[in-house]
């Protein structure tokens, strides 16, 4: 079991090969390559317009790349080029083995249905057909993201911003994905709310041994959550390495500027 886990962790989960994409004359990303291993948390940082969100969309198969390839090691152990997956396979992957946390929870949640159904939907989509068990799973997930279970039948419309974001995380994690994409998950939240969210995220990510690609412009968030950092500027990865290494010993001009611009690191 342990040996198998070791082998599992030794092979990359997600491989980006030479990804490039441009919109007309605008280069969204250029020659981006990296490997993400199981349980690894990679933060993509850079200012707005640096191409990080486009990159996230390409990685998660929501946009095609003009050039290059994204491969993923499926649950059966076979690594496959995402562009060769059929739509059904890709969508299945998206709602089972992957998660996607949007900056705006309203985009990732069904605002008109209850929190319990929001969490349970992915389970029902993979064939869970027992109300009691679905509800029990939803309750336990609400607890894990620190939402009062008494609120299980309320719609996210009645939730605060921080609760919505935690609900979105529960909704994504209920099928025990191996890879989660996050697009500025703490954006637009108060500092105290952010701290709680980060704490919840940090614990879950470790407990579940999740691999995460997180896009953020907040270096403090990157430091707290990520193992590795990809600094982007003008669509290119200009610096990469261990998170604390890049933040404490930035090599590139732009990275130094970025690090020195933080108010409180």
């Amino acid at each position: 079991m342990a040996n198998q886990n070791l082998r599992e962790n030794d092979e990359p989960l997600l491989i980006a090969d030479d990804l490039s994409k441009s919109f007309g004359k605008i280069i969204a990303c250029q020659d981006v390559s990296f490997k993400l291993y199981p349980g690894e948390i990679l933060a993509i940082v850079g200012e707005s317009g640096s191409g990080k969100s486009t990159l996230l969309q390409i990685l998660s198969g929501q946009q095609s790349s003009g050039q290059g390839r994204v491969s993923y090691r499926m649950r059966d152990g076979v690594t496959r080029d995402l562009s060769t997956l059929g739509e059904a396979e890709r969508r299945f992957l998206f709602r089972t083995d992957w998660g996607y946390v949007h900056q705006d929870p309203a985009q990732g949640l069904r605002m008109a249905v209850s929190a319990g159904a929001n969490v349970g939907e992915r389970l029902m989509a993979v064939g869970w057909n027992h109300y009691g068990r679905i509800r029990a799973a939803a309750s336990s997930w609400l607890e894990r993201v620190e939402i009062d279970v008494a609120r299980i039948d309320d719609t996210p419309r009645t939730y605060s911003g921080g609760m919505r974001q935690r609900l979105q995380i529960a909704r994504n994690l209920v099928t025990q994905p191996r890879l989660v994409f996050m697009d500025e998950p703490t954006g637009g939240l108060d500092v105290s709310v952010q701290a709680r969210l980060l704490d919840v995220l940090r614990n879950l990510v470790r407990e579940l041994h999740l691999a995460v690609v997180i896009v953020t412009h907040d270096l403090a968030v990157a430091r707290l959550l990520s193992d590795r950092l990809l600094v982007m500027k003008g669509g290119q990865v200009i610096e990469t390495g261990l998170t604390d290494q890049v933040l404490d010993d930035p090599a590139e001009h732009y990275t130094q500027l970025l690090v020195s611009s933080i108010l409180s690191p």
Partner: peptide, 9 residues
Amino acid sequence: LKMIFANYR
């Protein structure tokens, strides 16, 4: 010290 910890390159 930081180089040994790989905090500095």
